[in-house]
Design a protein around this nucleic acid. Structure first.
Lengths: 208, 208
DNA sequence: AGAAAAACTGGACAGTCGTCCAAAAAAGAG
DNA sequence: CTCTTTTTTGGACGACTGTCCAGTTTTTCT
């Protein structure tokens, strides 16, 4: 049954092309013709593999962030004992530079999910996977430092997640206006954030 | 010159209607015909008062969040000494319930500003006004508690701003999926956030 | 080889979009 | 009242949208 595999491969190819197109122009300004042209296929093909535009976009969302999250999990889990936060910062910095438009798309899709209920489901799946990653890091932190932090799981996790996510969002906004030293600012500010979240002093002076 | 005033009044009226329409359907799915119908005027009127759709949307953004930010500044400044964070939480909670769709629109517009450079300018204005508010609160905190926090202004401010903003964003996402106890969760989690940001222990146990 | 199924094409379709405008209605000024 | 200016209308225009399909090409199977 190579026929099945072939079809599946083309499907994922189209999904990838659609993702790239979406990342470039944004949800509001992308059309099926854009995607078809970018993919080098005719318009009808899209309706051959996807029943509707919404189905294609759903497929884009559900396949989204696959590589990024795998790398994130791999690098952070494999990081040396006390420096997983530095590893996290490193992965984020590299990904923010290399796949900036993909991250921008992530926030675009999240916003659209607030208007289109059908998108909410898939967005929720990705978010809960990110939550799980944070949870795993927390239990590890708890274990290694044998600290007495009995962490209220839900509350702490969503706190950390929100802070990091808000941070990436602000970076993307800053960077779309003054792209010069945005990365450097992010790197420093992220270290500051991790320090605030996980060390014993809050808002302590240490930078300049 | 009532003629000038009349025209100005109608302009702001149309901007308000457009804002409501935008908040309801989102940037990606709103049309000038929607706005015209919602406003009870004909389509041509919009082009009589605004040269293009983009100009109308720019006017919407620049007039956006006026009331909210005024209330925020008023309530937080007027709050009793040690409890401005509680006042902030109170204002946010009320506004998130009452004007939920307006806040949703705020993130929509921010995302669009990453794709449409023309929007970036106005979005930046609002964000810097919010930054100023945080800055004002910080110097007050510094003065009243005479703490030794020599705050790195830029870094700390954007840290706090990102955390709060990310928090609101997560709330809106959560709430669009399970609206039941989202408010209560936000209230508790926000207190947790403020505690983490401004008290001496990070991620301390105290809830449950 | 030929027959059946899958993959693909280009264009037609019914809408909607932003833009624009000639003409009607309303308001103001003399 | 008439004349001018401002405001408003309803529709036309071309371009674009998602959807759909009658054929054509390619592949697969016997």
């Amino acid at each position: 049954m190579t026929t099945q595999k072939k079809a599946e491969a083309k499907r994922t190819f189209l999904i990838e092309q659609a993702t790239a197109c979406l990342a470039e122009k944004g949800y509001a300004h992308v059309s099926l013709r854009d995607i078809a042209k970018e993919s080098g296929v005719s318009l009808g093909i899209l309706h051959y593999y996807f029943a509707s535009k919404e189905e294609l976009l759903l497929a884009v969302i559900s396949s989204y962030k696959g590589r990024f999250m795998e790398e994130l999990e791999r690098e952070v889990i494999a990081a040396p004992s006390g420096e997983w936060s530095a590893a996290l910062a490193s992965v984020l910095c590299r990904s923010l530079q290399e796949d900036r438009k993909l991250h921008r798309l992530w926030y675009d899709l999240q916003v659209q999910a607030m208007y289109v209920p059908a998108f909410g489901e898939q967005v929720k799946v990705i978010r809960s996977r990110l939550h799980q990653l944070i949870s795993r890091m927390l239990v590890r932190l708890q274990r290694e430092e044998q600290s007495s932090l009995t962490i209220d799981e839900d509350s702490a996790i969503s706190l950390i997640y929100s802070a990091i996510d808000g941070f990436l969002f602000q970076f993307l906004l800053d960077e779309s206006q003054k792209p010069e030293e945005a990365i450097a600012r992010f790197e420093q500010a992220f270290a500051h954030l991790m320090h605030t979240l996980f060390s014993s002093e809050s808002l302590s002076p240490e930078s300049r």
